[in-house]
Design a protein around this nucleic acid. Structure first.
Lengths: 208, 208
DNA sequence: GTAGTCATGTAAGAGGTTACATGATTAG
DNA sequence: CTAATCATGTAACCTCTTACATGACTAC
């Protein structure tokens, strides 16, 4: 139930509306945990029902209303509990490695396409991550700034350090994916140059 | 819809019952894609309905029956399509990095616990992976052996090479997770030695 | 006879995706 | 007046988890 904890964590910075949270989950938060508004609004209602959030219903303009959510003591306790309880590790389910393990049913051309797209995707991710890392280092992330304003100076170093640690992990993960795909491309070139045959798409794939 | 494609891929080795497939997904296949029997049996029925599998209903003993599934041309075509079509990359959702980014709400002791458990989990995974890697190199994996028997010698090198490529990726991923967590442990030791304070669990976490 | 394995499912619920739906407010 | 943004949802569907359920066959 990580969405709930991601929401609690964001709300420790300051009270927000669902709309504000949706924007956070489209922005910097999305790099670790993304969620669409169709998931966020109902979850906020459930968290309110479960007593983790306090809500103030505020007017907007003459007719409309908005709901301002704030984390309360029960919400903070839940956040602490999440960080204390042992992680349960999900069963392995890796679509990229699953696919690559079966490139024999593909062609060299298609396999190359897959891996170059992989490199492209994670190169792009890497750039975003490195930008975020530099923004965190320079305290240029709005959410982080507001969080730091709430806490005493002495804590700032740890708050920033943990974020850098997590985001550096994402950077390294992207680098790993790029290096892996590039090793695959080298391997494919080698196999193809030596005319090692594949099952390919030709043999029995015409039906259906 | 990767479960479907994982099932198709396994069935290229030889026809199997649902029970056989369940065992595969508890064994070597589980290292890339795991699935419980409650997911496998209904999916096989749907794949049969969609014309991707041929089924022979065989007697077992006097009273009971079993269903032997075989991939057909439509199933092979679907497998080729899966390998040809561009991958859609899922939105980022990384529970480990999400948690680590918020260790400020924890204590040094609890954060250390989390990271040592992380090291333990992925060290164990790494051992399993390296064993599998060595088994693939020596053709000691039953499913792989049967697959190779079905295909001409000339293809064997590529079949094995793609599996090694994929499984080496999992090995490297486990190594990355271990290295990441160990960097975190070093960082935590450093912060604690220098008495950098955390929000911790003490300040307002008693409620709930 | 009984324990282990073979064999096949159902059901409730959590979490996530995609698409649709509605309307108010504000800046130009 | 019109476009962008603010604001909040619903609904259908898919995937996966957890737990339960049933019974036949086989080796001892």
């Amino acid at each position: 139930m990580s969405l709930r904890h991601a929401l609690l964590a964001v709300l420790t910075a300051e009270p927000m509306t669902g709309y504000d949270l949706v924007k956070q989950f489209d922005g910097s938060v999305a790099y670790v945990w993304s969620a669409p508004n169709s998931q966020i609004y109902p979850e906020l209602r459930r968290m309110e029902r479960d007593g983790l959030l306090d809500v103030r219903v505020l007017p907007r303009g003459d007719r409309a209303e908005k709901r301002m959510y704030a984390i309360n003591d029960a919400g903070l306790a839940e956040l602490h509990r999440w960080l204390r309880d042992p992680t349960t590790y999900a069963a392995e389910r890796d679509p990229y490695r699953l696919r690559a393990a079966h490139f024999e049913f593909s062609t060299y051309e298609d396999a190359r396409q897959q891996l170059t797209a992989h490199v492209r995707h994670f190169t792009n991710a890497l750039n975003n991550w490195e930008q975020l890392l530099s923004d965190v280092r320079n305290r240029r992330v709005p959410l982080l700034r507001r969080r730091l304003e709430e806490r005493p100076e002495a804590e700032h170093e740890a708050i920033v350090a943990f974020r850098l640690f997590a985001f550096q992990g994402e950077v390294d993960k992207a680098k790993f994916e790029i290096a892996w795909a590039e090793r695959g491309l080298t391997m494919i070139d080698d196999l193809e140059r030596r005319n090692v045959p594949l099952w390919g798409a030709g043999e029995a794939g015409q039906a259906g």
